[in-house]
Nucleic acid binder design. Sequence first.
DNA 1: GTCTATACAGTGATAGAC
DNA 2: GTCTATCACTGTATAGAC
Lengths: 210, 210
Amino acid sequence: MGPPTVRIEPNETQGAGKAETILAAAKRMFLEHGFGAVSMDAIARAAGVSKATVYAHFAGKEELFGAVIGRECERYFADFSAGELDPEDVGASLTTLGCRFLDLLLSPDAIALHRLILGEVGRFPALGEVFWRAGPERNLGQIEAFMRTAAAAGTLRIDNPRLAAEQFVGLLRGETQLRYLLRLDSGTERAKIDTLTAAAVATFLSAFKG
Amino acid sequence: MGPPTVRIEPNETQGAGKAETILAAAKRMFLEHGFGAVSMDAIARAAGVSKATVYAHFAGKEELFGAVIGRECERYFADFSAGELDPEDVGASLTTLGCRFLDLLLSPDAIALHRLILGEVGRFPALGEVFWRAGPERNLGQIEAFMRTAAAAGTLRIDNPRLAAEQFVGLLRGETQLRYLLRLDSGTERAKIDTLTAAAVATFLSAFKG
DNA sequence: GTCTATACAGTGATAGAC
DNA sequence: GTCTATCACTGTATAGAC
């Protein structure tokens, strides 16, 4: 009576549920303490399962780590939709893009993820490529696409849309992200994000307005 | 016959020499593999001394780590002298500042140091403050000072010198440093640095030229 | 698949001879 | 101060019962 090609596991709490629980616990631990400082024992305890169960689902600590990171990277820019941008109103569009970018970039999860990846990319070189493509590259592509349409519409004087996108991102970031990564600052209040974005947009428009 | 207040140790090869050797070995190991992945045993072996000797000079792994980082941070911007900048020729001055900044920022040592600090600042919060003051803050202050003099000379239209300095640094950095940190790019050839700097200077001047 | 119990390697740190 | 040898401890991984 069920669908012929797809089988629904009757007890998802026991099968995939455990793996899910382990992944969630591992994510929390890794993001909070880093790779080296977290033991498989601690992950098992945090997930409420035995150590042997963890090893039943993941071949080892490194594989578990990779699974967590890959997952987070995918989630990273999932909610970005470039629909509501207007090439005619570049100020509003850049402000929208900027606020969204900074809101994500400075979020506690993103900061923790950056710390984790940058700290471990020396030991796991593949991490860099995975993260770049899932996060920064995708974001840069969306901003570049807007630069291109604005240049075509004549509302911005841009020769190199890719470079312009990178410079806009640079203006937005400044040293702010570094201060967050170094734990010298925190918080994503709307007023702060708006101020940072406004300054970047003003300078960018002053340089590229047609 | 010697100076009355200062005593020179006769055998600096035995006393401070060993500590120096240990610090050098620890620096190399930490920068290459990170804090968690390096054991005191490995450091002792790399320095050519016994583990007990390491503990005779440094109370523990964390103290040794702190000593290495503090040392590198100090070395970081030691050679920066803001003497040869000319407020009348802002293009040349910004180019000089930009090249020097990128040359340091993208150097293998600086990249490795960034990875190390960002990866461990979660576990050693004091690291963030120490690094910020020794490196980025000092650099930012020098650039800000130039912005102020150029604004006073009327060669740049700048309201907020600090913000302008931070935006200039942001334009220089773009996503380049991130790609280096993620191991997607490397190398500090003069041509590359010059191109990156020229793009940043052009956009900055386009926005702030008086 | 899941658990308890355990083997094993490697870690940070120390004691005692020289 | 420096070394050799060793300590206690933790984390990885597996065996065997259920």
